[in-house]
Computed example of a mutant assay.
Amino acid sequence: MDDDFLDPLSGSCICLTFRRTAHLTTQFYDQMLAPAGVTIRQYSMLVIISEHDHLSIKEAAVLFKLDRTTLSRNLKPLEREGWIEIQTGEDRRSRQIILTGKGRSTVMKATPMWQEAQKRMLAVLGQENWQEIRQTLDRANTALAFSLSELF
C-alpha cells in the first residue's frame, strides 16, 4: 500500500474523492434542470414516485435507500411545491405518496433537460469510460453495502 494513501493531506481520501465528484455532478444536473424549477434530487424522487402508484412511505424508504426521517425531510419540499400529496393509507397507520398533476407536469418538463444533461455528461466522460466507471461504482456500492451491513 502506498504511504501517501494513509496521509490525510495527500489528496487520496476515498470519501473526499467521492464527495467531490458527487458535488460536481449534482451541481451540473441542478443547473441543467433549473429552468424546470427542480433539482436533480427532486427530479429523481419525482420520477421514482411517478413509476409507483400510491407508494407507501415504507416502500419509498427502501427504493430511495433512506431512513424514514431523512425521506420525510426530502419529501417536504416536494409536497410544499404541490408536486406530491401524502395521504393516509388504508390502515390509517400507513401513509402513501401520490404524484399530483403538477408533479407529473414537472417531470414531463424536466425530462428533456435531464436527457440533455445525460448527453453532455456522456460527451465529457466518453461512452466506454462511463461504462467502466458505472461498473466500478456498482461493484463499490455492492461491497460497501455488504461491509456496512456486517459492521452495524
Score class of each variant (00 low, 15 high):
Leu9Arg: 11
Ser10Leu: 09
Cys15Ile: 12
Leu16Tyr: 06
Thr17Arg: 14
His23Trp: 13
Leu24His: 07
Thr26Ala: 09
Pro35Phe: 06
Pro35His: 05
Ala36Cys: 08
Val38Ile: 14
Ile40Ala: 09
Arg41Cys: 10
Met45Cys: 07
Met45His: 08
Asp53Gln: 08
Asp53Met: 06
His54Asn: 08
Leu55Gly: 02
Leu55Pro: 02
Ser56Lys: 00
Ile57Gln: 03
Lys58Gly: 04
Lys58Pro: 02
Lys58His: 11
Lys58Asp: 12
Ala60Phe: 00
Ala60Ile: 01
Ala60Gln: 01
Val62Asn: 02
Val62Phe: 00
Thr69Trp: 08
Thr69Ile: 13
Thr70Glu: 15
Ser72Arg: 09
Ser72Gly: 12
Arg73Tyr: 12
Leu75Pro: 11
Pro77Arg: 02
Leu78Cys: 10
Glu81Asn: 14
Trp83Pro: 06
Ile86Ala: 02
Thr88Arg: 13
Thr88Met: 11
Glu90Met: 10
Arg92Glu: 12
Arg92Tyr: 10
Arg95Val: 04
Arg95Thr: 03
Gln96Val: 05
Leu99Ile: 00
Leu99Val: 01
Gly101Met: 00
Gly101Asn: 03
Lys109Cys: 09
Lys109Gln: 13
Pro112Val: 05
Trp114Pro: 05
Gln115Met: 15
Glu116Ser: 15
Lys119Glu: 14
Met121Ile: 02
Leu122Ile: 06
Leu122Gln: 06
Leu125Cys: 05
Asn129Met: 09
Gln131Arg: 10
Gln131Asp: 13
Glu132Phe: 08
Asn141Ile: 08
Ala143Ile: 12
Ala145Trp: 07
Phe146Ala: 13
Phe146Asp: 15
Leu151Asn: 09
Leu151Cys: 11
Phe152Tyr: 14
